[in-house]
Design a binder for these strands. Structure first.
Lengths: 212, 212
DNA sequence: GGCCGACCTTGACGGGGGTCAAGGAAGACG
DNA sequence: CGTCTTCCTTGACCCCCGTCAAGGTCGGCC
């Protein structure tokens, strides 16, 4: 297994080696233990991050005590909180490590300067934001039209390989949160698909057995 | 009442007169009747738009027949579909005029060229996307945690003036869609607030009468 | 090994809100 | 003026899914 480098993040794929070196010099690295928080909602935004290893959950607090809607689960190698640097001074969400993780931190100031100087970087940035916008937009659609079983079906279709098994990158609890449902409802949904004979579940291993 | 110009859109506020002239020359204008569609989901993206007058509803179709989750209602003077130009080739949503409207169309090709040439415009673009991202993110939060009455309360708090009445810019049907509920549920919610004596409703006129 | 804590599963229950249906109310237009 | 359409309101019904509770399983750790 090769160790991935943060350059492979979609945000940077269009950059030249020289541009990457420039970013490399301004970036720092950090390790997180499981459950550790990288940043909190409302905290001043110091820059953005690239996840190299592990898994990060982005959540928002709410007026309902105990409720933490999950915006997304970030997997390697992806950047996150890029948009936070422009929407305002503070992070709009809380980032929690779901497992031991390693992130690269790109500080705000130097990066903004690089953006001004480099149209290609700015375009890459715009593109990355558009991808996020699509993801979140998709989530709004699914939350407001599909029921929980339909959302689960959509997720499975998108993630299950045609043959072979998928090992869940996160716990079912976290997956449930990502899909906007409780662990109980996820469990019931998986059982329904198993009873229909289209899915096989063994712990964290999911295997497709039929059309959908 | 003065006629607004499309330059007043948040996307353009940071631009110099020269930059605005450049955009002016590439843009075209168009009028829409009530119910008319500006563009359809999956249609190739020809550029983005600025709403000068009227109201535009952005919806997504879904696998559930008849269900059209509303992403947002755009009011003057705002731009929309900017992000569509980068996320892919096609529009990610359908735009429908809720009333007679006037829009300015900025074609994709020339605008992308302008972006490359002008770092300030690129930064303004990034900022505009970040604003959208925040709005949609907020919507995910509210859809997944608050119940319908709470979402209505939040909306009222954000839009009702401290004194005087608010005239709804769109029908209650459209407002309900925007809040992720049915017209029936919206109606019941408004009745509850009236019975509590904190709100006065006369047709499209809403008036605050107490602390929320 | 044995204990303890997460995570997962399954059952029972209740409520929020979507759906269906039946009128008002308010223009649009002949 | 009547008619039609669209929007809004209110009532009745019921289903999805969140909540609570009770195990079951699988670790980590002494």
């Amino acid at each position: 297994m090769t160790t991935p480098t943060w350059h492979q993040a979609p945000l940077f794929t269009t950059l030249s080696p020289a541009q990457r070196d420039r970013l490399e010099r301004m970036a720092g690295s950090r390790r997180l233990g499981a459950g550790e928080m990288l940043f909190l909602e409302e905290e001043p935004c110091t820059g953005f991050f690239v996840l190299v290893e592990g898994a990060i959950q982005l959540t928002r607090s709410s007026n309902v005590p105990g409720a933490h809607p999950t915006l997304a689960v970030v997997l390697p190698v992806n950047s996150f909180a890029e948009a936070a640097m422009f929407g305002g001074e503070a992070f709009p969400a809380t980032a929690t490590a779901l497992k031991p993780s390693r992130v690269v931190h790109v500080p705000k100031g130097p990066f903004l300067a690089a953006l001004r100087a480099d149209p290609d970087l700015a375009l890459a940035m715009i593109h990355a934001q558009a991808v996020w916008l699509r993801r979140i937009t998709q989530q709004v659609q699914e939350l407001s039209t599909s029921d929980s079983l339909e959302r689960l079906r959509t997720w499975l279709r998108a993630h299950l390989p045609e043959q072979g098994a998928l090992t869940l990158p996160v716990t079912k609890k976290a997956l449930a949160a990502q899909l906007g449902m409780t662990p109980e409802t996820l469990s019931r949904g998986l059982r329904i698909f198993q009873d229909q004979g289209v899915l096989e579940v063994q712990g964290m291993q999911l295997r497709k057995k039929g059309s959908l």
